[in-house]
């Protein structure tokens, strides 16, 4: 059973005067443990697709099954709980809370979870360790570099131990070296922890870190293929 099963997904924005179609009916599956990049130029509908997959938005028509259950059967509270428990989000703009330490930022999802408080410190410490940000744990976002901010955001996405991580242009605001480091972390999360990763990007060299690329154009899937010569951010023997 695929983790994500999308059939004829359509999304239309209607602001009264003008209707914009963002998705023209897309269908695909994503299985647990896959690392999929959704690629396309701006306006191709890739972000809209990611938002629907991440329960942040709702489709106009078509079906979306997550973990075997149709999204439409969930209520608002359940959607929030699934986002908290099974999904992790990494955004281009980091979206860390200002004037709040890395530790507190990473802790934030736990506050909304049913994970017992006794585990919180351990989970936060582990997540910060996983992205190698121990030395910066008690710094505020304003004191961090872009790469460090994105690593803090990844730690936040990891802290509830989600099945899938949605990364929306995670390297978009970073220089290539920091971007490379972020991709290394995402690959490790996929290969070592077997976490499913859905990455949105418009750069081919970033997308080639994934095992599969879905090419989007004008709200439709143009091509869906496995990556030949997949780029490994880190050499295998180093792991």
């Amino acid at each position: 059973m695929p983790l994500i099963e999308v059939k004829d997904l359509k999304k239309k924005y209607d602001d009264g005067e003008m209707a914009t179609v963002a998705l023209h009916g897309v269908s695909f599956d994503i299985h647990e443990g896959e690392f999929v990049a959704i690629m396309g130029p701006s306006g191709s509908g890739k972000s809209t697709l990611l938002h629907i997959l991440g329960f942040l938005d709702k489709q106009t028509s078509g079906t979306y099954h997550f973990d075997g259950k149709s999204m439409k059967t969930y209520g608002e509270e359940e959607l929030a709980r699934i986002r908290n428990k099974k999904m992790g989000f990494v955004f281009q703009a980091f979206n860390l809370l200002p004037r709040t330490s890395v530790y507190e930022n990473v802790l934030l999802p736990l506050v909304y979870s049913d994970i017992p408080e006794s585990e919180w410190d351990m989970r936060v410490t582990n997540a910060i360790h996983a992205v190698g940000l121990e030395a910066r744990a008690h710094h505020e976002p304003s004191e961090l570099s872009g790469g460090e901010k994105q690593r803090a955001a990844i730690a936040r996405a990891l802290v509830t131990d989600p099945t899938i991580i949605f990364a929306d242009e995670p390297t978009g605001n970073l220089d290539s070296k920091s971007g490379q480091a972020i991709m290394e972390i995402l690959q490790d999360l996929n290969e070592i922890d077997n976490r499913t990763i859905v990455l949105i990007t418009h750069e081919t060299y970033t997308a080639e870190n994934a095992e599969r690329i879905i090419h989007m154009l004008d709200g439709e899937i143009e091509r869906d293929h496995l990556v030949q010569n997949r780029k490994s951010a880190r050499k295998k023997f180093e792991k």
Partner: peptide, 16 residues
């Protein structure tokens, strides 16, 4: 607004 969006994305419900 952004903070609210983020909180919702990481699992805050409307009630929260």
């Amino acid at each position: 607004t952004r903070e609210i969006g983020l909180r919702k994305a990481i699992g805050a419900s409307e009630k929260d």
